[in-house]
Design a binder for these strands. Structure first.
Lengths: 292, 292
DNA sequence: ATTCTGTCTTTTATCTACAATAGACAGATC
DNA sequence: GATCTGTCTATTGTAGATAAAAGACAGAAT
């Protein structure tokens, strides 16, 4: 295989959902816009729809013939990009599978295990290396540095510097800046989840990422915003594998976020700094607790 | 070609220099250690030496037969790793060759121009992307964000946060920490160069990198240390292409470094912070001046 | 008993090839 | 006149192959 057609399959599934709600599809360029793919892919999707008698396609007319059935969709496993698959496998390996620091990482072995070519694994490792968890010995293997206490401390140190600075910028954003509007939306979501915490506490993880990213973006500094990727991925997988007291922890974090949001709204740098510090402190403790 | 044998050629040249100073070479493992290559490569070098009648090789005996001639060496162009070559070509292109922000970068074109395969170019771009100068559109081209004023400001903002923090750590390093010794060496080099500034001012660039890296390392934070790569590469190429007033600028920076070093030595955090700020301020100005 | 060499195996770095996807352009349609 | 479609070309993403380099192990030399 040269290239997986995951872009096609994923767009196909999304287009199928669009099709369920309408009696005819819009123009090719418009579909491309909505789905975020090129016209070439759109046309491939339409051709398939036609073959399966889902639509009658004649130039500008794309009339829906029947409702999609569950088995018209591609299985979701097939719509994930190769990079995502590699990332997940790799993270599972190094987080779950008792990966000791200092261990060697073998490109070929990883590729075979994941069922992919070495090129993709290699490119993944290069991209991943900026997270500071692995390191390359040129002409030789990669070394796993491991998700250790030091790693967590170094990560949080930088995170705290960056977020404090971003929060300080946030309070001085002009009132008509779109960030305020998004902050309102995020706050509302916090309240919704808190009101039904027993059932919805798992939604916190995603919301947490959204909120902190919004704060970091206020820095208008690409290095600060990019660094948030590292934090996001660490916390993302961290949440997945450390579920002890999740409900309670998340409830507490939600409350802290609300205090933090209020402080940002006050436009008072002092208050914002305090609320930010308080939350970062407890986030750090949570992270450290999960490391042996 | 599968792999360039630059490791071999470079080690070969260095081994040839060793050979000039001795009448017999040490054991294979020892040579490997000295040259930083595996025994496989060492043996390849020795075989070649034997072929060219440079040594008589019989098991443990490796007696030098004749002095190397200039044409025994491989040309230096052939000893650079592919990654270095790509980096240089790319930087020349984007810094020298009027590269406008927003320009598209084409992997295949770049590869052809440099005379290499697309894989290597691609891997380079992935690695390079962490410097924030280019950005990838998946399934499509890379975009050059350009060495703009914003870039320089964002870079220096983070640099200043990191270096101030590192300097604060530096002053509290214990007296027996090896960093102090290295600081002494670096200081001596500063004085040497200053004493002969008219002729040696170009050596500043390398020294600058050494000094700031030493400071950053005091942070014991991999993210801070890794970030210094970005600063180093930017300043490295910056020095190469902006030569106006180089002598004067470098002399001033050397003086500032000396004050900064003295402040670090004082173990006084206040003094260190002041000296650090002063120097970073003028470093920032210098960088900004060179951007249109 | 340690260190070295000869030989063999494994792994990385890089090239080439090709399908998936993006993108460009002219003529058709509204 | 603007937008859309048909067709064609260019570029990316990935696999597979191969030489360079690393590394392992047993037997030889000190």
């Amino acid at each position: 295989m040269a290239k997986q057609n995951t872009v096609f399959k994923d767009a196909y599934n999304r287009c199928l959902r669009l099709l369920a709600d309408t009696s005819s599809l819009p123009s090719e360029p418009e579909l491309g816009q909505v789905l975020g793919v090129s016209r070439t892919t759109v046309r491939a999707i339409l051709s398939r729809f036609e073959e399966l008698q889902l639509i009658a396609w004649d130039k500008r007319k794309k009339n829906v013939l029947r409702q999609p059935r569950p088995d018209d969709y591609f299985p979701t496993e097939e719509t994930d990009s190769l990079a995502d698959i590699i990332e997940r496998s790799f993270m599972r390996r190094i987080l779950a599978g008792g990966a000791e620091p200092g261990m060697q990482i073998n490109e070929l072995e990883l590729a075979r295990e994941i069922g992919t070519g070495t090129t993709s694994v290699r490119e993944f490792l290069i991209r991943f290396s900026r997270f500071g968890l692995i390191e390359k010995r040129p002409n030789s293997h990669w070394i796993l540095k491991g998700f250790t206490r030091e790693f967590a401390l170094e990560l949080t140190e930088v995170r705290e510097m960056f977020e404090l600075r971003s929060a300080a910028r946030f309070v001085s954003l002009p009132d008509d800046h779109p960030a305020w509007e998004e902050l309102t939306k995020i706050e509302a979501l916090h309240r919704e989840i808190l009101a039904d915490i027993d059932r919805r506490y798992q939604e916190f993880s995603e919301l947490d990422e959204q909120f902190h990213l919004l704060v970091h973006k206020a820095s208008s500094n690409r290095f600060i915003v990019d660094f948030y990727d590292i934090i996001a991925i660490v916390f993302h997988y961290h949440y997945q594998w450390n579920k002890t007291n999740a409900r309670q922890r998340n409830a507490r974090a939600l409350e802290e976020h609300l205090a933090y949001i209020e402080a940002l709204r006050s436009h008072d740098p002092e208050k914002a700094e305090q609320a930010c510090r308080r939350h970062l402190q407890s986030a750090r403790e949570t992270l450290l607790q999960s490391i042996p």
